[in-house]
Structure formats: C-alpha cells, structure tokens
Write a protein that binds this DNA or RNA. Sequence first.
DNA 1: GTCTATACAGCGATAGAC
DNA 2: GTCTATCGCTGTATAGAC
Lengths: 201, 201
Amino acid sequence: MTTKEKILNKAISLFNTKGTENITTRHIAKAIAISQGNLHYHFPTKNVVIEELFNQFLAEIKKAERFKNNSFEKEEVIASMKGSFKIMYKYRFLFTDNEIIWRRIPKIKKTMLALFDLKKSQILEIIKLYKSQGKFRKEISEEQILFLADQFIFTITSWIGALKYMGKRRNNYDHFARFTFRIWLPYLNEKEMKAWEKILW
Amino acid sequence: MTTKEKILNKAISLFNTKGTENITTRHIAKAIAISQGNLHYHFPTKNVVIEELFNQFLAEIKKAERFKNNSFEKEEVIASMKGSFKIMYKYRFLFTDNEIIWRRIPKIKKTMLALFDLKKSQILEIIKLYKSQGKFRKEISEEQILFLADQFIFTITSWIGALKYMGKRRNNYDHFARFTFRIWLPYLNEKEMKAWEKILW
DNA sequence: GTCTATACAGCGATAGAC
DNA sequence: GTCTATCGCTGTATAGAC
C-alpha cells in the first residue's frame, strides 16, 4: 500500500469515528507513523484529502450502479439498495458531518445534491412503473405518489443520521435497506403488499 | 436586554447561519460590540453558551406541550406539530450541527435522545388510538404499525437536514408539518384518507 | 461589569536538510 | 519521499486594571 493510500484509508476511519472537525493532518500522520510534513507532501491541504475521499465515494457509487441490471424484481431492487447503503456507510462521515464538509468545500455540496436528484429520478421511474402495472391501491392520489418519491430520497439521505436515534440492534445497512422499503408497503394493493411483506420481514 | 441575553440571542443567529464550529467567542462578542473578556465573564466557556441555549430550547418545547390540550382532532394535532417545528427551527443549529455539538457535549446528546424517545411514545399513543377506532386499513400488519412510529420520529428528527435536499419553496415548518402527516395517509382506510387529504393539501 | 492585554495550545501549511 | 523545525494564525481562557 502506498503512503497516499495509507493516508486516505486512515483518514476515512478517523473521520468516521472522531468527526471531521476534530481530526487534523497531524492526527492522521501520527496514526500511520509518518511526519506531518510528509502528509503535506502528498496532500497540500486537508481539504484535498476530503475531496479525494469524496471522489472515491462517487466512483464507488457509480461503479455499483453499472453492475446493476435493469430488472425491477423485488430482490434485485433491495440488493441494489443494500449495495448503495454499504458504500454510504463506508464513507459515512460525508453524511454525518455533511454540514461541516459542505461549509468547507461548497463544490462537494453541489455534487452531492446533484447525486440525490439523480437518485430521486430513478426512484420516480420505478414508482411510475409500479403504478402503471396497477400495483398501487386505487385511492392513492397523484400528490401522494410524488410525496412518496420525496419521502424515499429524504429517508435515504438521512438514514445515517437516523442510526443514532434508533436502537443499537438496528445499526446496519442491511436492516436499513429493508427499513427504507417498508415506506413502500402501505401504498400497494393487498396482494403486492403481502408479497413484499414476505421478503422484508 | 441584559448583556447575557444579548450574547445568547446573537449566538443563536450566528450558530444558525455560519455553523457552530465556525463561530468563536470572539465573533459573538464582536457582533454585539463587547469585549471577549466580558463575554467570558458571563459564560466561562463556549460550551456553557451552547448548553444554556439547549436548556432554553428544552424549556420552550416543554412549555408548548403544556398548552396542548389532549384532543386528537386533526387540526389540533397538526397545529401542535407546527408549534414544535417552529421551536426546532428557531434552534436549528442544534439539529443541523448535532454531530459537532454532541461530540463536544455528550450530555446534550443524552438528553436529546431521551426527548426523542418521549415523542415517539406520544406518537405511538395516537397511532394505537386510531387503530382501535378502525381508521387504519385492515391489511396493515402489526410490524408495519410499529414501523410507522419509527418513521414518524425519524422524519421529525431529520426534517431540518432535509430542508437542504428539497426545493427552496419548501423551506418552512408549515409545509413540513403537513409533509410529516402525509406519511400517515396510505395507512388509513379510504374514508379517513380522504378526510386528511382535504386538510393537508 | 466591562475593558485591555496576554498566556497557551493547536491548527494548517511551508522551508530546507537528507 | 521523508524528515525536523518553524512560521503565522486562530481558538479558548485568564489576569488584572478601571
């Protein structure tokens, strides 16, 4: 492992556990037993370290997407979401400390929001398909359908923060992928609801 | 207005707008034209300023609750939630910067989580009442009901963060109180759903 | 209560030797 | 590439005069 990789890996774990604002270039350097001067040889500023990690995150998210096939089968949709959550969890400081990071590096905020928008449009696609297939209960209004998409993206983008509010047993992305899909259930007709319920519980 | 009050009020607005980690005692003092030494006469440390504001927040939340009557009528439940959101919005740095604050002052984390738990139990009470009154659709499982309570508390505690993910027009607590209750709708039977829909849209 | 002055620690970042 | 040494700055907090 190159020094550069060592720095990035240690930065992830320290940011995740101690908070982005509390970890300095000195801390990272000390944790992998190199000098602070050396760290600054590889990364001119702390912001560059963060940006590099954000780019890694983006690359992994996009790579995960490429392998996803276009099926909307339940199991595959859930598996795909689990995959995304796993990556988000790996880089969770980007979400738990998002305020700090966005204030430091506005470019990251912009790119992240664009990513969320993209995800939202993908979700809307699935919702529309399901609706056209008559899987929703009839009384659900158009407004409520749009709300469902909002609610999905809202939940996905907030889920890491939510780990703190929920019981310890639930602190994993596997649970959370299921949690997210539970949003879905009461919108479905009786038959579809039962089918999802079987998978999710 | 006493100097102490001036400090607290300015601290709220600066924390809300510039971020808790970026605002120092120097900034607050300068903004109200007193010396930093004077500020430290009133508040020994920055943490004490934050704790004082947190206590103010708690007091306001509890006061709002006392005036709430025990009716579970739709309009009153919505109005009550709006009231809570208004207070949360006033002290929004406690939520947007919660990670920073919780890491600085663990006691605040503990108290906040206890507050969330209390809110959750209140919500469960309403849900159970509604269920006993047969307002839910029949196919909703017990697990899904419990999920609904989780989802409510999750949304309420994350809502400030969500303002950043949503369109600009939606940046107000009035909208958000309605948004939160939309979660509710697909769980209800047709008649109840229509009644809520009328109020919320 | 309020001020000025200052101590002290820690941060990001750079210089220069090896 | 890696080190040591150091600069300049900012943050918290305190001392002592008024």
